[in-house]
Design a protein around this nucleic acid. Structure first.
Lengths: 328, 328
DNA sequence: CGCGATACTGTCAGCGCTGACAGAATATCG
DNA sequence: CGATATTCTGTCAGCGCTGACAGTATCGCG
């Protein structure tokens, strides 16, 4: 049933029916109520596709997850999920719907496809993966996009994220204060966020006396991380302090450590990153750098809607917080 | 830039341009290649909204999560996330996009809104929550929907899920075989899936000698579950065997047990449900009833597309599998 | 060379809705 | 009572695209 029919039933023109349903002020109250009641009765709803075409506005925001360097990750990563949940809430509250897109970037045009399709009013990109340049290129001309990830000076991207460098520093200081001498960063510094975390980690260590520092490149999924950490421990002496690039990596590492007979935190202190919901439920409970996903999600939505409204906004780096539990 | 412009540049009619871009066979090869090249060059993409309106087909599937009884849950629940990831993959593979909708059902019409909006070609409903009747009503007349959840005899819903009754039985048998005498089911039997799990659990216990059985209603989020379990243990003697309605509940329960000085599995054997990725990474590693989310997601998509194509399909109950690890 | 078959390409209506504009009905006032 | 303002309703074009239908060009063949 279309608007035409509804209008016919109500004995008014389509235009009046349309106005009644969208609460336009220039329609008599009685008329509006009658039409709304009829719509209800006949189960009529406006066709959003037609409305979107006409209004050139879809009411949909695309949440896009590029999977450049970690194809399996993302949608099963608890941190990402928390963010997605927050986004779903924040968008719903603002009257927007959510279009979810995981993209394995092939060629440089993966973002253009989504933008030019006309399906969304704006884009929230989650994580920069290894696509910093492709994103940057788009960000130069396309305003209606915000990005969760690492901020870069002089970038066109409006980003929301924690200050990853500071996060890395916090972790290093804490491990050093505990007396750790042989530190390791677990993660793949190809992703800008991880690279920043490592940068801060490394910088703080460089200032300390007699503390060494290394990087163990490790993937983001549970299984990969566990396997790689196990392999690493079999071939190398264990560090006595660890900053994992994510809580998931930290948990996998703790398992690998436990199976090798190493105690956490006595033999090896472990710090994670994210503070996912599960972090408090591991044994030992995970010490970690907290990122507030709910706040971050709200911020992303707020900034995006401001940009869509044509306002100028700036990137936001939230302060990370060290949550001390039992693992370090 | 619209199709009209592109056609003008190419020196052909819009119709020919449209056909060229959608690989219609009735366009000369040279013409097609030229138009495709021009489109590429000018960054032209078809407007999906207009195309959808015209074709009466959006290429979008709605993934809808009703949050009737557990408002906070769902999007942060690892099991759900796994399923969502699988759905995203399966849909992408079939050329569909994914529209994500969390709904807190208010009034009986929450599903109609999504259907009649014309935004999606079909719906995958995740979990029945406490909305069995509302869903049933829709399922009677709307064919393009499939549901993850519990199957019910004589229902109009096409469901995919594990055989929850059998899952509950498996768990009970395993606990009884271990010598547990005082069993508890942790979870809220209001959700049909949980109710089935409990039914099987209870039935298997009823057949055993001298084994008791009780239900502790517990919510699905980490924090709630932990809090409620702690409160329960403070007020009641502990059971010696537990089936939790989900792995998340099981993990929270294990934490509460540990803090009360109860050892798992020596004092209390714990079995979870789902086999989320993290299940193997808890201490002790969680024994659980496995649900294959990736297979389930593929099945959901396959059945939905078959229904959209007008075929008749039936519900599927997958066999659950007991994964024995350390917690029971 | 003419005729039909074949291979393309163009014309045009309309998917369902919205909003600018115009028109009708009613109220206000000198 | 007529003029003007005010309030409501209707008409109609068109958002960008697709596909039925019609049209044109080319080819084969008697």
């Amino acid at each position: 049933m279309g608007l035409v029919e509804l209008a016919k039933i109500a004995g008014v023109s389509v235009s009046t029916a349309s106005r009644a349903l969208s609460n336009h002020p220039r329609v008599a109250r009685g008329t509006r109520e009658r039409i709304v009641a009829l719509a209800q009765e006949h189960g009529f709803r406006l066709n959003q596709t037609a409305s979107a075409l006409r209004k050139q506005r879809t009411g949909v925001i695309g949440v896009v997850v590029p999977l450049g360097h970690e194809v399996d990750q993302a949608l099963s990563d608890p941190f990402f999920m928390g963010l997605l949940g927050g986004l779903a809430d924040a968008l719903t509250k603002r009257g927007y719907d959510l279009f979810l897109s995981r993209v394995v970037p092939q060629g440089p045009r993966w973002l253009d496809d989504i933008i030019a399709s006309g399906r969304v009013d704006g884009i929230i990109l989650i994580g920069q993966s290894d696509q910093l340049e492709a994103i940057e290129r788009i960000a130069g001309s396309y305003q209606r996009m915000v990005v969760w990830g690492a901020a870069r000076l002089g970038s066109n991207q409006i980003t929301v994220g924690t200050d990853n460098v500071t996060g890395g520093e916090l972790a290093a200081r804490h491990l050093i204060a505990r007396g750790c001498k042989k530190l390791a960063f677990l993660g793949n510094p190809e992703a800008p966020e991880f690279s920043d975390r490592h940068k801060g980690f490394h910088a703080a260590i460089a200032e300390a006396e007699g503390v060494t520092d290394m990087v163990v490149p490790i993937h983001l999924t549970m299984e990969d991380a566990y396997r790689e950490m196990t392999a690493y421990l079999a071939a190398n002496p264990a560090p006595d302090g660890i900053l994992a690039a994510s809580d998931v990596i930290a948990m996998s590492a703790m398992r690998a450590l436990a199976e090798r007979g190493l105690r956490v935190p006595e033999d090896v202190a472990v710090i994670g990153y994210d503070d996912i919901l599960l972090a408090g439920y591991t044994t030992p409970a995970l010490t970690t750098i907290r990122q507030d996903v709910v706040y971050g999600a709200n911020l992303l939505v707020e900034l995006l809607l401001a940009r869509i409204a044509g306002q100028n906004v700036g990137s936001v780096a939230m302060l990370p917080e060290l949550i001390v539990r039992d693992s370090a």
